[in-house]
Simulated assay, not measured.
Amino acid sequence: MAAADVKESVDDDQRRLCEEFAAVTGTDTSLAEYYLREKNWQIEEALNVYFDGGDPTPQIDLDSHSMSPSGSSGNSSPDLVVTYDSGAPADSNLGNQTCSLMLKLLTWNIDGLDNKNITERTKTVCSIIKRESPDVVYLQEVIVETFAYIETMCSPTYIAIPANSEQYFTTILLRKSRISLLAHKIIEFPTTKMYRNLLTVKARFRDIDLLLMTSHMESMKNHSHERKTQLTTVLKHMSEADAATAVIFGGDTNLRDYEITQIGGLPDSIGDVWQMCGSPEDAQFSWDITKNDNLDMPFKPKCRFDRLFLRQGCSSKLLPQMFMFVGTERLPCGRFASDHWGILCEFKIV
């Protein structure tokens, strides 16, 4: 029997349980999968939790900025699609020989400074992380309350490294079964007016040394000088990293193309991953107010604020294979998970 046939026979049993759960509760199979997975596919236990008005995992009521015990939060919706994986090590799944040679990375400004619908929006961020199972996650505009929720929901699978513990900050998540954490460091931007810095993590993927870097650079057009100073710092650290180490920087850069030109462009050793993937038009403008109406603005700009830069290591190469947006689905509350689209990228190891 082929591996695909084995996987299908297992999925059939789980799908049947999801359909039974959905039929009893009057919900859908996606929500059913959420409850069943968290209760190890024991349908009676999952149904008991559902009808008790509970959630099988701890929740944080982000709208009131306080911890709440298991139970429905005031801002949650039974229509919210939340899909969780089993939490099993990725390499134990069938057909993962090819997957093990790919590094998947997500970078996303999750707009934690917007309090509106923050519980539902943060739940969706966690849902997408679980669904896509990236090896590395770069998050920007995390706040203390959303960090606590994300860490709780992702902790079985990911380790979370924050760049701060107050105001708003960046965070890097590493998939425990695939990435080994070696060290991390916060590099300050001494002239920032907006609490910005550079979070760096040394890690190992298979036998490849990685330097993972994220930042949320200074915002708004009139802070161009500071933003260019921060970009220069980022490129310096990328260029000066150990030659054997592959370096991936990503985040909400707030950059305009002309600002990169004004500092002399990217060094020859550093590539723009979007351009390396062929500059796909459908994944160009990550902050697009013509499509994303979370912000009520009189004009409709669209900008390529969120970017990924890559410097190869001399031992192995990372070849970008995919560059796409996530978080483009409208939620039951009528809004999107963030005013930014997230960027999901895959790198082939050669």
Rank of each mutant, 00 (worst) to 15 (best):
N48A: 12
P134I: 02
K348F: 12
L212N: 04
L319M: 06
Q312L: 03
R206N: 15
S180E: 08
H223C: 08
S224L: 05
L80D: 03
Q284H: 09
R206W: 10
D306E: 02
T200Q: 13
P280T: 00
Q284R: 14
W41H: 08
E19L: 10
L113P: 14
T328Y: 09
N222D: 00
T29L: 08
Y195P: 11
E45A: 12
C154E: 03
L31P: 13
T25S: 13
P156Y: 09
G327A: 05
L103E: 04
S279F: 09
G278C: 05
W274T: 03
D209Y: 11
G271C: 09
L182D: 08
I172S: 03
P320H: 07
I172Y: 07
D114E: 04
I343F: 09
N96T: 15
Y149P: 02
Y35W: 02
T25V: 05
Y34A: 04
L36N: 11
T328C: 05
C18T: 14
L235A: 01
N117D: 07
W108G: 00
S64N: 14
F336N: 00
D114S: 09
I343K: 14
I349K: 14
A46N: 14
F323P: 10
M194C: 13
L235R: 10
N48M: 13
S239A: 04
T328V: 07
D63K: 14
N109P: 12
M324A: 07
A183C: 08
R335V: 01
T157F: 07
Y34D: 14
